[in-house]
């Protein structure tokens, strides 16, 4: 019997891959392309666009590898991969994080994955109200990604050295 995951992988098509600084201008152009891939799966593409923006801006805002623009603005460096599979799209981001932050992020992913839609909505409200705001944003991007995709987050931590790791995050968005 052939493994369905292998079949799906064989049918996969890379729609976008990028490695470098996540400037807003670039995120915006990529986002526009995602919206215009084709005329079918409109609902999936809307969700994909929203998840794409959230996860890309996480890299831009929080990657420990970054560019400084005019000594003021910090632009995170990372990677992104968007793949079309038979029944879904798969979107992955990867960036450098502190080892201590990797543990916190992994715990957050576990919490989000263990929550149903109702609990996620509750968590989102709680987190948004309690967020300090300003430069910290709402800190609900991961919750939002799962609420929109209705699929669990797939994450991986790869150690670089004793201080830093790579954190990669994959969200699957069903076409139907």
């Amino acid at each position: 019997m052939i493994d369905t995951n292998i079949v799906s992988l064989m049918k996969s098509k890379t729609l976008l891959s990028y490695r470098g600084p996540f400037y807003i201008e670039l995120i915006s152009v990529f986002g526009m392309n995602i919206r215009n891939f084709n005329d079918i799966y409109i609902n999936a593409r809307k969700k994909l666009f929203k998840i794409f923006i959230e996860l890309s801006q996480n890299v831009s805002n929080y990657s420990e590898d970054f560019h400084m623009v005019n000594n003021v603005q910090r632009i995170g460096i990372g990677e992104l991969y968007l793949t079309e599979l038979g029944e879904s799209y798969s979107f992955t981001t990867k960036n450098q994080v502190k080892v201590t932050d990797a543990n916190i992020l992994a715990e957050r992913c576990e919490l989000v994955n263990a929550s149903d839609q109702g609990k996620l909505r509750e968590l989102k409200r709680e987190q948004r109200i309690n967020s300090p705001g300003e430069k910290f944003g709402a800190r609900i991007g991961l919750i939002q990604a799962v609420m929109l995709s209705r699929n669990k987050l797939d994450y991986k931590v790869e150690e670089i050295d004793e201080d830093f790791s790579y954190f990669s995050l994959t969200v699957t968005i069903d076409k139907y």
Binding site: F49, I53, E54, R128, A138, G141, Q144
Partner: peptide, 8 residues
């Protein structure tokens, strides 16, 4: 569309 930072 508004991102989650804008929702705050």
């Amino acid at each position: 569309y508004l991102n989650t930072s804008s929702t705050k």
